[in-house]
Design a protein around this nucleic acid. Sequence first.
DNA 1: GATTGAGTAGACAGGTCTGTCTGGCTGCCG
DNA 2: CGGCAGCCAGACAGACCTGTCTACTCAATC
Lengths: 191, 191
Amino acid sequence: MSTPAVARGSARERLLAAAEELFYADGVQTVGIDRVIAHAGVAKASLYNTFGSKDELIRAYLQARKDRTRARIEARIAPLTDARAKLLAVFDSQAETFAQPGYHGCAFANATAEAAPGSVEHQVTAEYRAWFRELFTGLAAEAGARDPDLLGRQLQLLYDGAAQTARMDRDPTAADLVRTTAAALVDAAVG
Amino acid sequence: MSTPAVARGSARERLLAAAEELFYADGVQTVGIDRVIAHAGVAKASLYNTFGSKDELIRAYLQARKDRTRARIEARIAPLTDARAKLLAVFDSQAETFAQPGYHGCAFANATAEAAPGSVEHQVTAEYRAWFRELFTGLAAEAGARDPDLLGRQLQLLYDGAAQTARMDRDPTAADLVRTTAAALVDAAVG
DNA sequence: GATTGAGTAGACAGGTCTGTCTGGCTGCCG
DNA sequence: CGGCAGCCAGACAGACCTGTCTACTCAATC
């Protein structure tokens, strides 16, 4: 394995791509700098010239993940008009990730599990979750829920639980389960 | 901090107590052997004579945590006769843990987040979750749910999600939220 | 053609990690 | 009283970690 697995692009792009693969698969704590640069086919000095530290590489990894998740969900919601359908589409998007071969749970949950309070991991995760909360409560209000904040929090509860179940039990059918349950909660909160 | 924080008992007991505190608070990966033995006030040789390796200490830590959780929940549901009440009592037990000052999420979720597949962490976690699943589905059947397996899985979904929310958002009110939601799901599945 | 910027290869420092080993102390039991 | 089990303190080995530094290559641009 002397040949790098991430071949094209600038050193920055290759590093980020390698970090995304390795950090997600094996954990930001477990994976060392040496593995990242070997996977990217890049010199160590390039990493430190570009990102300055491992922490900043971790930040870029999580930031990229956040942006990608957000874009994926928003693209799915955009063409829909019905707010109920939009809410359920969020879980359809999650189902897609479960089905991917290397699925390994929520990257933010994993990264923060053993990270120190105030660390880079917690900083980006806080942003990620704030956005998610607003998404759910906003759509809940749009859908006409009696208590949009309650429904929004309930749905985030389900979303988090599904990711945990899918990872820990290696059970991709959690996708069906969570969608059914979410639909029931939405209908109960609106009806 | 030269005086050990865990004072009484045999070397084994002190090591396990220290491991439970430190591993849970800061993570099994983050905490090194030296911190554990300093906290326990014990020599390194005693650790390796007693447990043989760090992995086995981690196993003992998770095993102890599993046994304690199980005992706590079973003691809570034992005096109850109504199956619905038993199901909700599981969430009351979880609410208690949320309220504890050092609450830091599900120990098993945290330990497995960046652990290699097949590791000690995953082994004990699999046992823990199998027990939990049977508890929920058994009580769901007892409560007269139309589809006990479905309800059991739904409740475990909620339980996992609540632990994640309580940890990541530092939001202990997740306890009320999950109890309310669980009650709604139980009633919908039975009625 | 000279200069400059970006990148490469890899040695190195300084620290931390797990795990082993030596040597000595204490208290209990026969 | 002798012996031994259990424990302590800490040095040490060997691996691995992040981050720095030197010396070199190559391509584009002025």
